[in-house]
């Protein structure tokens, strides 16, 4: 929820879309983007780019959060700095697979509560309790539409990743 908005808020280019093709093993349980062919499903992935320095470009990739998209995450976590798990506070449970995945993969992640229309029904502490997230993982509130919020979430993530490396 709000991935493309989040990427677009900080990207220097309009978010681009690329497609990955799902394999038959995972296509069977996908009913949203089913193409009619029993063996293939195409999944869109949006991404943006931030040039941080003359020789330093940061790429942001937004992928769906359901666990049937793990095959894309496996690809993205290699060499990645970390992940922002963007949570729609109306549907907290939707982020369980992503949280499980990143906890198991060891990739640093932060949880960003993206309130619908800027409204935040829960505090980070309440969400931490509900999701059983350890005290080390940052949880912040964000409005994915605002550049400052998205930038702040990225800074929190990189700080967290740096702390994890130095620990």
């Amino acid at each position: 929820m709000g991935k493309t908005t989040f990427v677009g808020a900080v990207s220097e280019i309009n978010p681009l879309r690329t497609e990955a093709v799902m394999t038959s093993a995972s296509a069977g349980i996908d009913d949203l983007t089913h193409t009619g062919d029993k063996t293939t499903t195409t999944v869109a992935m949006d991404f943006g780019r931030i040039t941080l320095d003359q020789d330093l470009i940061l790429y942001l990739f937004g992928t769906p959060g359901q666990d049937r998209f793990w095959f894309m995450w496996d690809d993205l976590v290699r060499g990645a700095i970390g992940a922002v798990v963007l949570v729609d506070t109306r549907r907290l449970a939707d982020c369980f697979p992503a949280v499980d995945y990143f906890e198991n993969s060891g990739l640093p992640f932060v949880i960003a509560l993206n309130g619908f229309d800027g409204h935040q029904p829960y505090t980070p502490d309440e969400v931490r309790e509900a999701l059983q997230i350890g005290p080390d993982t940052p949880i912040l509130t964000t409005d994915a539409r605002h550049r400052a919020d998205a930038k702040s979430a990225l800074i929190t993530l990189v700080e967290h990743a740096l702390m994890a490396r130095l620990r």
Binding site: V10, I50, L52, D53, L56, L58, G79, A80, I81, K151, L154, I155, V158, E159, A161, L162, R165, L166
Partner: peptide, 17 residues
């Protein structure tokens, strides 16, 4: 994983945005 120097450069770059 990205090394510490790279992470520091990314962090510094993000803060300057």
């Amino acid at each position: 994983q990205p090394d510490v120097t790279l992470l520091e450069r990314v962090l510094s770059g993000l803060r300057k945005l």
